Simulated scan of single mutants.
Amino acid sequence: MLVAIDAGNTNVVFAIFDGETLRAKWRASSDAKRTADEYAVWLTQLMTLQNLKPADITGAIIANVVPASAYNLNTLCSEFFKVEPMVVGDPKLDLGIEVHMDHRENVGADRLVNALAAHRAHGGPLIVIDFGTATTFDIVGPDGAYEGGVIAPSAQHSVEALYRAAAQLPRVKIERPEHVIGKDTVPAMKSGIYWGYVGLIEGLTARIQQEYGRPMKVIATGGLATLYAEAAPVIEVVDPDLTLRGLRLIHAANCKE
């Protein structure tokens, strides 16, 4: 079995694959100070609930955008699972994707993994929207090459910015409001966060396709993908496990090599 670890700025997701089947996945808040032992204690309990044991793991792969957590995650794999992990970003690891960027090394590992998984599942050209710590729009060419993208603040960070910057504005939940026009402060804020980001999604996808010069399928992933897809018909597919499946594909390809 394979353990795939997607370590982002907000959450770390651990997934167990049995071949192509996703057996289990768990999410923890990102904390660079969390030790390998702490991860191991937490994972042991969760794996037991799924009738899984550390000895079942025969491979590991990590996509990590938080350099400070790299040592602990690598140690978790080598000491707890007894396997040396493949790490996205390692020059020896073949991602199976061309990157048409001025500085390839600056592209987040998760964005390249998403591009690979999306192209394998849906062809191309594509726009892959990831509702993560940032809201990213990644461009995947017809041949699967990564061709660039857009990075915008996340809806969660917009909520926090309003709360911290304005003394009389509360922190609100991100959800679809009943009306666009709010009749009080909280409904007005919810409308701005929700419908404002729907406008962001629709506006950017339209401008990207206009600049690209041809129709593009739009795939969404990340925690808020389903919520925003309800009101943004430009999103054609919601794929919550896109990054994890991309990690499995990369591991399988490099094992064959």
Rank of each mutant, 00 (worst) to 15 (best):
R176G: 05
V99K: 12
A253Q: 14
Q45E: 14
Y197V: 10
V172F: 04
N74M: 09
I5G: 06
H100M: 14
M189S: 05
A68G: 06
A252Y: 09
C77F: 02
A109D: 06
I219F: 12
R111W: 04
F131G: 00
P54H: 15
H103Y: 15
Y228R: 01
P233L: 02
E202V: 02
D31P: 12
Q156V: 13
A225N: 03
F137A: 03
I219L: 10
F137I: 03
D18Q: 13
D184R: 11
T44M: 08
L76F: 13
L126R: 08
E20G: 11
A167V: 08
S154M: 00
G89S: 06
Y212I: 00
S30Y: 05
V180D: 00
Q45T: 14
A32F: 08
R104A: 15
F131W: 02
A15E: 04
I139N: 07
I139C: 14
T221I: 06
V234T: 14
S191G: 13
G141Q: 11
A206T: 13
A229P: 04
N114E: 04
F17S: 09
D102Y: 04
M47K: 05
T205Q: 08
W26R: 11
G182I: 06
S30Q: 13
A121W: 04
E211Q: 13
P54M: 13
T75K: 13
I5K: 09
N74G: 10
A166T: 10
H119R: 03
Y197S: 07
N11S: 12
D138I: 01
Y71H: 15
R111I: 09
A118P: 08
T136P: 09
V12F: 08
E202C: 00
V159S: 03
G89V: 10
G19W: 02
N114L: 04
Y228G: 01
T44S: 15
A165P: 00
L247H: 06
P240I: 08
C77T: 12
N9F: 13
E84S: 14
L49H: 00
A115Q: 08
R34V: 14
D102K: 12
A24M: 13
S78Y: 02
V198K: 14
T10G: 11
D37R: 15
A188C: 12
G124W: 05
G196W: 06
D90P: 10
V3F: 12
G123P: 04
T48C: 07
G149F: 05
R214M: 14
Y212N: 01
G8W: 14
H251Y: 15
I208F: 05
H122D: 06
H251I: 01
K256F: 03
V180A: 12
V238W: 08
